[in-house]
Design a protein around this nucleic acid. Sequence first.
DNA 1: ATCATTGTTATTGGATCCAAAGTAAAGGCT
DNA 2: AGCCTTTACTTTGGATCCAATAACAATGAT
Lengths: 225, 225
Amino acid sequence: MSDDDKSLVSRLRKLIGAGHYHPGERLGEEAVAEQFGVSRTPVRLAFRTLEQEGLLQRAGKRGFMVREFTQADVHCAVEVRGVLEGLAARRLAERGMPQDVAESLGFWIQKGRRLLDKGYLLEADINQWSDINSHFHGSIVGAADSRVVADAISRNNHLPFAAADSIIIDSEDLAREFKKLQLAQFHHELIFQSLKSGEGARAEMLMREHALIGLRYPELLADNP
Amino acid sequence: MSDDDKSLVSRLRKLIGAGHYHPGERLGEEAVAEQFGVSRTPVRLAFRTLEQEGLLQRAGKRGFMVREFTQADVHCAVEVRGVLEGLAARRLAERGMPQDVAESLGFWIQKGRRLLDKGYLLEADINQWSDINSHFHGSIVGAADSRVVADAISRNNHLPFAAADSIIIDSEDLAREFKKLQLAQFHHELIFQSLKSGEGARAEMLMREHALIGLRYPELLADNP
DNA sequence: ATCATTGTTATTGGATCCAAAGTAAAGGCT
DNA sequence: AGCCTTTACTTTGGATCCAATAACAATGAT
């Protein structure tokens, strides 16, 4: 197998997220163990972790089943990320942003600006934006200086489509995606601005709105071409 | 042992929460296994769960250590609960509160009112309030109708002092505690009011403020006797 | 004397075995 | 024929065994 180096949990996580297992499907320990060529022990350990992450749920007394994710679940996961990252942003604004964090955020904003300044989007730009985006969000969450908040966010990010860097990219319509990223970049700059001036409430609200960008804006941009 | 019926995770959770293990102390699988009279296997499983819950953290490549909780961590956990329960309340208000939920919340509010109406607090009332309180919060979270949100809250509640029903009771000063519960009851009624009228933003803010009642109000009440 | 290297020990990860519990199926009874 | 009971099988939980590895200690070299 190609990814023998990755841990069992992340491999399973990826498979579940990719919809490789049907939602509601029961996962037998023996079956999975055989599928990955390991014994039952590591599978049992992994299942407990995946259960806590919310990807698996107990199927009565008969082991675990793949958690089913509705559209509403995705929506909620994004909103949860919104309020949590909003909390992180507010904390950062209220406690004052350290110089190095400001520099780091400025750096990623500059990078985003340069990426979008050319006025259009290339296929190859997607990955770069994903990188920029996760560094921006990661810097804020990290600078909020609270393991509890960071853990809550990271746990939520284990849910499919919930993570900030899991923006659905529609390679078919790069023009529309460009508009979306332009808006996201604008959000980033506004958030940066409010963080710098210690506007906690504004930073929080902006962050919460920013989280929704993948949910609500596509339809909006679709209607107004 | 007296509590053989409880699962290993909850027993460990309780011990860790009670400070039975020193923060930062390394927990060996063998040692814990022997202490509980079981083999290493269930301990290993439990450790993975406790790790995800944030009570244990990996100690390098050498097993797990007891997570250390600072006062700031407790504060953050309470704020996280605030924003999450706030989200639940807003969802409930915006989607409209079903009749049965309104009746249930009204019931617990009535019970709280009757408990406090006598104007003072008895030692025995504490447990009853805890019951009322968790039912009130539980009803709202449940009625928000989102497993994602409910799970996020429940995971956060595993952290010591983060759960809504873990109000620190100072049996030495029941008069002050009475004031606190009076305020909490008032919060509950205001939240109920805003939920009924569909005031999402108000319900959310009230819920967030309500979460802080155990953190900030004691000092306030201490200064103003 | 200090540092590096090597050997020993402690501890975790993985595999296998056994027991317990639950489910499905087959057979018997009304 | 339908339902209940009993039996066989599947599957998970717990215990033990073995291997891999990291920490520790001791010994030797510079």
